[in-house]
Nucleic acid binder design. Structure first.
Length: 473
RNA sequence: GGCCCCUUCGUCUAAUGGUUAGGACACCAGGUUCUCAACUUGGUAAUACGGGUUCGAUUCCCGUAGGGGCUACCA
C-alpha cells in the first residue's frame, strides 16, 4: 500500500517551529517510502482565521524544500461533505442533535468539576423525541450534532512512537461533530478528510494524544479503517512547558528574521528528539540525507527543550561551510550602509567564521569603513608600555611603507611578510600585532590585523597607523 | 479535580539484562602568530526515589514523586 502522509495546519497566523517539525517528519517519512506528502488547510474555525496565513505556510514549506504533492485541500470548501457524513451518522443512530445552550453546558461543567468529576456532556438531548427535534429544527433553534459515544469500551491502538495506548470510552465526551454555524469541528473534518485523502500515517504532536480515541470512535462509526498514528513529543521552553510565545520566539519567520538559515533550522528540528542510530554521532544532515536516514520509530518519547545554544552552534557550522558569494547575499540586507560590493564581500569573508547568525554581521564592523575612535591606552599591549608601543608602531609603519600595493592583495601574503619581518628582527609578535590591530580596529576584540589591513588596503592601513602614533604622543 | 503520556550529565541524546554509563552543545583548562572567533587536546557533569524479578538491572514489573498534554460549538 502506498504511504500517504499529510501536514494539516490551521491558518491562524504564523507557522510554529513545532509545526514545521511535524511537517518535516511527515515529509521525510513519505519521501523515504516513495509515498505522498499532502497539505491540508484546516480552516474550520472562522473566528481564529487569519487571512493570508495559508499562503505564508505554503511559502515556508516551499522555501524549506518540503514539497508537497497535489493541491492543498481547504476544509472550508468541503462543508457539504462533512454535513453529508454527519447526516449519515444521524440516520444510523450514531450521532444526535443537541440544543443545549452554552450557558447550560458551562454550568454543568462547573458542577461536575466541583464534584470532582470529569467534565462531560450529560447526554440530555439524547432523550429528545423525534417530534421535539423536528420542532427545534423548524424553529431554527441553534444546535449541534454530537457523536454518541458507547458506554463501556476500551479503545486502544499501537502508536508507532509510543507503543500501545488505551483509553476507556466512558472518559470520552460526546464530541461535537457539527457546530451550530454548520462548520465541522476539527475532529469530524480531520477524520473525514484523512479518510477521503487516503492518509495511511498520521504523524502529529503529542497534544493530540487524548483526542485520538475520539477519532478512532468516529472511524469506527463510519466503518472505516483508521490510519496508523505516530504521536511525536513536544518542543519545550527552558522551563519544560510547551514551547510558547511568552518565553521566546516560536514562529519560523522569527527565526529566519533573526538570521538563522533554513538548512540549519531544519537540521536542528530533525535532530532534536531524534538520533539516527546507536552508533552514529553525526549531527549535521542535509535534507537528502535525512530522507535516507530518518526513522520514525527512533523518535524520542519525551519532550525536548528547544536549545538555542545548540541551534546557534549548528547555524554557525552551516555559515562556515557556506560559499562566500551566497553568504554575502544573505548578509547584504543587514548592512545597507555598505554600498561597495567588493568591500562587503571582504568584510563578510573576514567575519564568516565568527558568525553564529547572519544578523551578527552588523556587530562591530563599523571600523572597516569608518575611522575608529578609541582610548590610546588600548594600543599598549599588556606586556608592553606606552613608549614601546609608539616605537613599534613607527617601525611597523616604516616596514609597511616598504611593501608594495600588491602585497596587500591577499591576507596570506600580507601575513607572511609581516611575520617574516617580525621573526627576522627578533621582535615579539604581540609587541607588533597588538598595537597594529588596535590601530586598525580600535577594538579590544577583532579579526586579525592581517585581515583588517587586507580589507582596508595599503593606504588606509598606513594612515590609521600614523594616526595611532599621534594619539600616543 | 479527571484521563493520558513522559522521566539518563545544565540541554539534546546513546546504550533495550553484564559498558570504566558513550557522543554532541554549553561550561572549564591547555595548545595555536596579539585579542576574539575558528580549530585542536583534555576535564567537570547523569541513570528521580522506593520496592520487586534476576547471579546481575539505565534496561523488565509495581508504587511514589516530579514534569507535560488534554479536559471548548479552538485546532
Amino acid at each position: 500500500m502506498k504511504i500517504i502522509t499529510r501536514f494539516a495546519p490551521s491558518p491562524t497566523g504564523y507557522l510554529h517551529v513545532g509545526g514545521l517539525r511535524t511537517a518535516l517528519y511527515n515529509f521525510l517519512f513519505a519521501r523515504q517510502n516513495r509515498g505522498k506528502f499532502l497539505l491540508r488547510i484546516e480552516d474550520t474555525d472562522r473566528s481564529r482565521l487569519v487571512l493570508g496565513a495559508d499562503k505564508k505556510i505554503i511559502k515556508i514549506l516551499k522555501d524549506f524544500g518540503l514539497k508537497f504533492d497535489n493541491k492543498p485541500v481547504y476544509q472550508s470548501k468541503r462543508l457539504k461533505i462533512y454535513q453529508k457524513y454527519a447526516r449519515r451518522l444521524l440516520e444510523e443512530g450514531k450521532a444526535y442533535y443537541c440544543f443545549c445552550t452554552p450557558q447550560r453546558l458551562e454550568k454543568m461543567r462547573q458542577e461536575q468539576m466541583k464534584n470532582k468529576q470529569a467534565p462531560k456532556y450529560d447526554k440530555a438531548c439524547l432523550k429528545l423525541t423525534q417530534q421535539e427535534i423536528e420542532n427545534n429544527l423548524k424553529r431554527k433553534i441553534p444546535g449541534v450534532i454530537r457523536l454518541k459515544v458507547p458506554g463501556n469500551k476500551t479503545i486502544k491502538w499501537q502508536d508507532i512512537i509510543r507503543g500501545e495506548i488505551s483509553f476507556e470510552s466512558k472518559d470520552v465526551d460526546d464530541q461535537v461533530l457539527i457546530k451550530s454555524d454548520g462548520f465541522p469541528t476539527y475532529h469530524l473534518a480531520n477524520v473525514v478528510d484523512d479518510h477521503e485523502m487516503a492518509i495511511t500515517y498520521v504523524i502529529r504532536g503529542e497534544e493530540w494524544l487524548s483526542s485520538t480515541p475520539k477519532h478512532l470512535l468516529i472511524y469506527e462509526a463510519f466503518g472505516w479503517q483508521a490510519p496508523k498514528y505516530a504521536h511525536q513529543s513536544l518542543l519545550l521552553n527552558p522551563d519544560r512547558s510547551k514551547l510558547s510565545k511568552r518565553q521566546g520566539d516560536v514562529s519560523v519567520e522569527d527565526y529566519l528574521a533573526k538570521g538563522y538559515l533554513k538548512e540549519a533550522l531544519l537540521n536542528f528540528l530533525a535532530i532534536i528528539g531524534w538520533t539516527e542510530s546507536k552508533a552514529s554521532s553525526q549531527e549535521i544532515y542535509s535534507l537528502q540525507e535525512l530522507i535516507e536516514k530518518f526513522d520514525l520509530k527512533r523518535l524520542n518519547k519525551s519532550g525536548a527543550v528547544f536549545d538555542l545554544e545548540k541551534l546557534d552552534w549548528l547555524n554557525g557550522c552551516y555559515i562556515r561551510q557556506m560559499p562566500l558569494a551566497k553568504l554575502v547575499k544573505l548578509c547584504q540586507p543587514y548592512l545597507p550602509q555598505i554600498k561597495d560590493k567588493k568591500l562587503l564581500a571582504k568584510i563578510v569573508k573576514v567575519e564568516q567564521e565568527r558568525l553564529k547568525k547572519i544578523s551578527d554581521i552588523s556587530q562591530d564592523i563599523d571600523f572597516f569603513y569608518k575611522e575608529p575612535d578609541y582610548n590610546p591606552e588600548l594600543l599598549i599591549w599588556k606586556k608592553s608600555n606606552r613608549d614601546a608601543a609608539l616605537e613599534n608602531l613607527v617601525k611597523l609603519e616604516d616596514f609597511l611603507l616598504s611593501l608594495p600595493e600588491k602585497d596587500f592583495a591577499e591576507v596570506e601574503i600580507l601575513e607572511k611578510n609581516i611575520i617574516d619581518w617580525i621573526k627576522k628582527n627578533n621582535y615579539r609578535v604581540g609587541d607588533m600585532l597588538w598595537p597594529m590591530r588596535v590601530a586598525l580596529s580600535g577594538l579590544q576584540n577583532s579579526p586579525s590585523p592581517f585581515e583588517i589591513a587586507w580589507v582596508l588596503g595599503r593606504e588606509e592601513t598606513l594612515e590609521r597607523i600614523d594616526k595611532a602614533q599621534k594619539k600616543l604622543k
